[in-house]
Design a protein around this nucleic acid. Structure first.
Lengths: 195, 195
DNA sequence: CGTCTATTTGAATGTACTCAAAAGCGGTGG
DNA sequence: CCACCGCTTTTGAGTACATTCAAATAGACG
């Protein structure tokens, strides 16, 4: 199991001694996901926090018209989960799917709770991770409220270069809150502007 | 200082002994805010988490066209802050303002850090608070992506009955991501449907 | 190479916006 | 008490941004 990346991730915010590291590592389960594999389905209870070693995943909901809405993309060195479902241990509305072949590590809700109890520093770690997610989520809300579709697309391209390469256009459009057709038209417009 | 509500708020998630309660209470500063008072201005560094005993506040950004975008309303028994600025201790983009006469309690960043160090349970408490905020933020994102303006307005009326009574229409429109004129038109349409 | 899916294109439509003006609604002072 | 002021809300006409639907084109993969 390749644990270097996740240990580096944890050490960004808290320091662990050798025993604590061992306990942490022993709480993780490795998993390989092929592109397009569904990792968590809407309606199921989310049992794990998922850390991405390599690859990329997305989470999305499907509305009453059958339309997909991408809530987040997650890349190497990020965590992803249906946090509502994970907290409440009730069925969630998010589906999580690999958009590229991926290597991930799973931390189950129970193991996470044990970590909290045995090594309280992990409360701090996940508090900080959650704070950062909240900031990102609010920033996205601000973008959605104050930018045009084209501006949001430009912003997206900077932040998610890798996603641009492996995600289909309709997923990106869904994340931006527009139709694939319209995103295609934005691209054409922008290509025209380049001279 | 009226501390019953905030102690109840804390006890929802962690248990405190008498000393810990005293330490917590001694970390708080009471403050009274008149309606329309600006509590934190965009460009300033956010120094406190603010707990609302009574009243209501809103946080918002102003975009390059001078348009206001309401990020959150906060009511009695809620916490509010510019979390990005609070975490990084750098100037933030949010303004926080009272929309009704309010009684609040301030917990400074330093006092909060001391609490974390002296009583690690507070890491858990704020982890849980932050998790709940993240869930709410994601839910709002889902609404913005998948509902029409009218549906979002109906949803808003259920969740924020009190805000409906004390916030001006343009703030509500701003929260919903539409213009005040359009919200007014939605209201008329809805009134028409009522028989 | 053929099939399937993803992307592009175009025309018609709709949802929400802009701008300008009118109406409503408190407060305040004569 | 009511007349006037400033601010919020409503209305309407014209417009823009983004959607829908349908069809054409391009790409990916067995």
């Amino acid at each position: 199991m390749n644990t270097a990346l996740i240990l580096k991730n944890v050490h960004k915010h808290i320091h662990l001694n050798e025993d604590e590291e061992k306990l942490f590592i022993s709480s993780l389960e490795p998993l390989t996901l092929k592109k397009k594999t569904v990792h968590l389905k809407a309606g199921e209870v989310c049992k794990h926090s998922t850390f991405i070693i390599d690859g990329a995943l997305k989470s999305f909901t499907v509305d009453k018209n059958g339309q997909e809405h991408v809530i987040s993309f997650a890349l190497s060195d990020w965590w992803i989960a249906d946090i509502y479902s994970l907290i409440t241990q009730t069925p969630g509305v998010l589906t999580i799917e690999a958009i590229a072949d991926s290597e991930v590590l799973l931390l189950s809700k129970e193991k996470q709770q044990l970590l909290y109890d045995k090594v309280p520093k992990f409360e701090r770690f996940f508090r900080i991770i959650t704070e950062n997610s909240l900031v990102a989520s609010q920033q996205r809300l601000i973008n959605n409220l104050s930018l045009t579709a084209e501006e949001r697309y430009l912003d997206f391209m900077e932040k998610y270069r890798f996603v641009m390469e492996c995600a289909p256009l309709h997923s990106i459009a869904s994340y931006l809150g527009i139709t694939p057709e319209f995103l295609s038209k934005i691209r054409r417009r922008m290509a025209g502007k380049l001279h």
